[in-house]
Design a protein around this nucleic acid. Sequence first.
DNA 1: TTTT
DNA 2: TTTT
Lengths: 149, 149, 149, 149
Amino acid sequence: MAGVNKVILIGNLGADPEVKYLEGDKVVANISLATTEAYKDRNGNRVEQTEWHDLELWDQQAKIAEQYLKKGSQIYVEGKIKSDKWQDEQGQNRKKIRIRVLNFTMLGGRPEGGGMPQSNEMSSPASTPTRSAQPAPEMKEIEDDDLPF
Amino acid sequence: MAGVNKVILIGNLGADPEVKYLEGDKVVANISLATTEAYKDRNGNRVEQTEWHDLELWDQQAKIAEQYLKKGSQIYVEGKIKSDKWQDEQGQNRKKIRIRVLNFTMLGGRPEGGGMPQSNEMSSPASTPTRSAQPAPEMKEIEDDDLPF
Amino acid sequence: MAGVNKVILIGNLGADPEVKYLEGDKVVANISLATTEAYKDRNGNRVEQTEWHDLELWDQQAKIAEQYLKKGSQIYVEGKIKSDKWQDEQGQNRKKIRIRVLNFTMLGGRPEGGGMPQSNEMSSPASTPTRSAQPAPEMKEIEDDDLPF
Amino acid sequence: MAGVNKVILIGNLGADPEVKYLEGDKVVANISLATTEAYKDRNGNRVEQTEWHDLELWDQQAKIAEQYLKKGSQIYVEGKIKSDKWQDEQGQNRKKIRIRVLNFTMLGGRPEGGGMPQSNEMSSPASTPTRSAQPAPEMKEIEDDDLPF
DNA sequence: TTTT
DNA sequence: TTTT
């Protein structure tokens, strides 16, 4: 049967996206995303629990991520769980889980670099000053699910 | 900020739940769940991709899983991604990801054992014949999120 | 900002889909879907609450629904909330909300007509006997979001 | 069967929450939330589509909404679809759909009032100046699903 | 109007 | 290891 494998995250980037340009015009971006949950423990003390997720974006989405996301950005993500398997040097079976991003949206958060007159617009990362600020793409339109794995 | 970390799955159990009774009245069930996606490759051939998920259920939910779920059962699951970290024998940092189940529901599928007059009811696993068939609990009511980690 | 408007339902059809073929090769299917929730009231009595949802499917999805779904079918649905507004005969503003289905999957439930050797396959509705049983399409592949409204 | 009826929204408040204190310590907040989707039409022109949702929050959540949300606030919402039915003056059956909020989270957006040192914290609405700024509650902890309808 |  |  066709199953369902869906992940929804809201969190902040722990670092700028890592982008690689591969042969054949493929582009992949890897992002480390923190989702934080807070609760009270049995003594009534507030405890924070942070989970780090490895996100993987391809092609058009990877390029948008490279252009608009940076360390600290808050995003909404939809994707699916996907595992890579291999054998390590000891011949042990290993498995790594990533979130394959199907679409994402930037959320609030006036970029700290300042200068932007309103919230919610996207900033060009300070680290890529050669890119001038551009009209923000409508991210929800960009869905990239042609890679089935 | 309070983030969002949500997983939604529909799939089939690869084996009967593994249930452990711990000290302090704690119960944990581990389930291996397959979500299958089918697509056509570039040659138009149908390809199936199966992802296996490690689910973890606690206490009341673990008991219900033990009682009603078995190999092959189809379920809907809501939960969150949760990682365990440790060092292996080589002193390498290791990380294992599980889905902490917050609620689940059994889906269709008249149990093959027969005898059940209607679809959708839950079957007592053949492997635990000492439990007689019982009225199915309303699974959606049973949410178990008191363990924050 | 690009927002998020997402609906996830699992329920049963209250009747066969109503399908209309429009000019320009457009097809629309309307489906009434029941989602049932059970809970205990303050006296400990089990109460059932059913919500009926008006689903709207277009084109390829509408055709699949026509072919494979019927009264009683259990489905998983992803879609978005969409309102139609108009003025009634009294000149009052009216609003009707529908779920625009973006993708759906049939769930378990051996069709009661019998004859099908395994669970989970799709049945040709008894009411359209001229359509012979066909290989089930992989429904998750069929996403239809080209109509933005 | 226990069904699934889930709504996930990210959008902005069209106005301050409307809060009513009812007898028996019940509190209800009504919120009008806009989710905006943008797409290109067949001529390549960018079109925006906004859907307005009627949200309903109860008790503890209603109070938090009153205290921290205001016109323009961006929030993430999880809830379920819920309809009210009645007969209008003409004796016609009428139905109104609301989103019963089960939990919500404030998103980014440094409040325009200024003064707040960091992004993501919540602001006390200017319209309730008698409430001094308070430590932001962890909203994800506050789930209110004891009202089953 | 479904389903259990 | 499931399911179709």
